[in-house]
Design a protein around this nucleic acid. Structure first.
Lengths: 215, 215
DNA sequence: TAGATTGTTAATCGATTAACAATC
DNA sequence: TAGATTGTTAATCGATTAACAATC
């Protein structure tokens, strides 16, 4: 049972493979080899086979992978068939945008509760969800079986809110606040920081510029 | 001169250090050791010193790093003093949101041109930028010295637009379209896919659930 | 000086890539 | 059968961590 640990980078690529085979299925392509799939995703054939190998044997020697079956296998592995409950922390500008973001449903996620500290926001409704005070977090998490919390609060409030929500038993956080959160070690945090992505890119742009000058 | 190659993960962490020392400077804290900085960012002291070591010697044995100097050094390394020109490709819903996104300026980036294929959008203005047809890309890139392109077009159009813009000499792309782009090898692409981030997180949430059941 | 902390080299760890026997 | 391609093990590569002499 104790499968070897799967790298997060593998999980991330699995979604890329799924995207591709979904496309291939639409085009009525029946089978694909690891090297073809790798070409389409800018990855190596070895990488494709290794990644899939963590989860079983999906291919056929000599002919490759059946597109339809691989698609279904990936959907199952990645839990695309299940719906998870999400709590939104912070109903400001970003929070409101996320509440009305249509993509969540497609990804098997459903925002079932939203919280804010601002008394003027409490009781208001956006996209079918009523905003509640943060003192209600623990009870709502339990009641609704919430497994993911999205932190869309200001940087200064993020740690406190993270404490409350992890204290209530939530183990997965998507953190939009630009701070390094301290959480218990069973909790998984994913930081999303568009500013930083852009900044990294601009670092490379600057480097290219100066290379151009000297080289 | 030929400095050893700096890992992208190091660059990414440099922004985290910068965020932290900016905070420390506000609090009038004068010096910080690698282990204290590591504690505040959930990284090890060795990691902090290694990362900084790629760019020079900023610390003082026995006392650590001068906050103000480290902040200034990081800003310089990361190019926070320079402004780069950005082209926005695709002026749909996401594109419009990015155009009005206030954070770009803070990050040393300026959207100087926007393009869309839809004739009904061409000529319209958002946030001070007039939307142009995609046939104008090459000339505008040259004229404005654009070094970064943000792709906010539908998946089906992304590759074609990427070809045009890289053909015009842009070497850094921020790609919001959920496709694997093929670009020349001197071009740096950064994919931003909120759906995938969420999906990865939900994968971990599901795994935690099933662990809970069996363990 | 004694204590603290750096910068850097060496050791470890983990992920990617290459290779190839097994198999369709 | 011959050709193609898998699954998996071994080799390589690169990043993180540990260790410690140098230094304030």
């Amino acid at each position: 049972m104790a499968d070897k640990k799967v790298p997060e980078s593998t999980i991330s690529r699995l979604f890329i493979y799924l995207r591709e085979v979904t496309e291939l299925a639409k085009l009525n392509i029946r089978t694909i080899s690891s090297s073809e799939l790798g070409e389409r995703t800018n990855l190596s054939d070895a990488q494709v086979r290794k990644d899939l190998g963590y989860f079983g044997q999906f291919g056929v020697s000599g002919s490759g992978y059946a597109v339809k079956e691989l698609k279904e296998a990936l959907e199952k592995i990645l839990g695309r068939d299940k719906t998870l409950k999400v709590a939104l922390l912070g109903a400001g500008r970003l929070g409101a945008a996320l509440l009305s973001y249509a993509g969540f449903g497609k990804d098997g996620l459903e925002i079932v509760a939203a919280f804010d500290r601002d008394p003027r926001k409490i009781g208001k409704e956006t996209a079918g969800v009523t905003i509640q005070g943060i003192d209600r977090i623990a009870e709502e998490v339990r009641k609704n079986d919430i497994s993911i919390a999205v932190l869309a609060v200001p940087a200064g409030a993020a740690q406190e809110v993270a404490d409350v929500v992890t204290g209530a038993g939530v183990e997965c956080l998507l953190n939009f606040a630009p701070v390094s959160l301290n959480v218990p070690e069973n909790v998984k945090v994913k930081d999303v920081d568009l500013s930083r992505e852009l900044a990294i890119l601009s670092y490379f742009a600057l480097k290219n510029n100066s290379n151009g000058e000297t080289g």
